[in-house]
């Protein structure tokens, strides 16, 4: 009985998942970019494969518990010394090995794929991200503008986020675009994302970083290329420039709203990385990678 009930519940949950998967309440299951899409496919594949295994286990359990219950008139076989079957054991070593094999293949493939920009897409745009206590600082090195707690990005172009932290470790996550990556003090790490649909999505700090960590959400405005350029111009016209002093002030713990800056000191991002120990990470693969891509962009 109990197991039947449980089985029902499980089906209900899986059903709910797929029914509601289409609504934008579930950004993870309804992504708007290739990275998120790739991750969602992996999630669905694994959920289906694992769902089958779990269903088999629960069905077997229900059957066995019912059939071999301890009732005086139970006619089912009772073999108290039956404890070995080579065939059965081979079967259930083989099944998980095959499933894990399949999942491993896709895992490794996608792990490598996600470190590269999406194929057949436009010119990448770079955004340098710094997590502060308890706000997000964004620099656009190509456009030479900076924002706090929101970003505008052009639709359909790969975005190279370069992440660091000038505060405790945090994690940069825009569920609708794709998975997250930590922001680490002293390290500059890269995350490739892309948004194909115009709209506003929520980004957040996913790793606990102290008192007001839940206030570290930011809007991601995905706009058309032309609107993006307009937005850059508008920021350039209507905002003031960020100075080192103002950055120092921003870096102090506290919660603030959205801000825009018409320009910023060029070296500020790498200065932050180096100040927090980036100096010692020179041989790190990420930095090498980043320098390489900088060179690429330089060309």
């Amino acid at each position: 009985m109990k197991s039947l009930w449980r089985k029902g519940f499980f089906i209900l949950i899986i059903g709910l998942l797929f029914l509601t998967g289409c609504s934008d309440k579930y950004p993870v299951l309804n992504p708007v970019g290739p990275a998120g899409e790739r991750e969602k496919n992996l999630i669905v594949l694994s959920a289906v494969l694992m769902g089958i295994v779990v269903a088999v286990v629960i069905a077997l359990l229900a059957f066995i518990v019912y059939r071999y219950r301890d009732k005086p008139n139970n006619k089912a076989a009772y073999k108290p010394n039956w404890d070995d079957s080579k065939i059965l054991e081979v079967v259930w070593w083989a099944i998980p090995i095959i499933i894990i094999g399949v999942l491993s293949f896709y895992t490794v493939r996608d792990t490598f794929a996600l470190t590269k920009p999406p194929k057949n897409s436009g010119e990448p745009i770079t955004i340098e991200v710094t997590s502060l206590d308890w706000k997000w600082m964004f620099f656009y090195p190509d456009q030479d503008v900076a924002t706090v707690n929101y970003i505008d990005v052009p639709a359909g172009r790969p975005i190279q986020f370069v992440l660091t932290s000038d505060a405790p470790i945090n994690s940069f996550w825009i569920p609708a675009l794709g998975g997250q990556e930590y922001t680490m003090p002293g390290m500059a790490m890269r995350l490739w994302l892309q948004a194909n649909e115009v709209g506003t999505y929520t980004g957040k700090g996913a790793n606990f970083s102290g008192k007001h960590f839940e206030d570290m959400t930011f809007d991601v405005n995905v706009v058309k290329e032309t609107d993006f350029n307009k937005w850059v111009d508008k920021v350039k016209d209507t905002s003031h420039a960020l100075t080192k002093q103002e950055y120092q002030k921003l870096a102090k713990p506290g919660v603030i709203g959205e801000k825009s800056f018409s320009s910023y000191p060029k070296s500020i991002f790498m200065d932050t990385v180096n100040k927090n120990g980036g100096l010692y990470m020179n041989n790190d693969w990420m930095m090498k990678d980043m320098n390489k891509s900088d060179e690429m962009e330089g060309k």
Binding site: G36, I43, D110, T111, S171, G179, Q180, N207
Partner: peptide, 12 residues
């Protein structure tokens, strides 16, 4: 355990 999927599950 599937790393790319974990980018979406992590800390959630």
């Amino acid at each position: 355990a599937m790393a790319p999927a974990d980018y979406q599950y992590h800390n959630s």
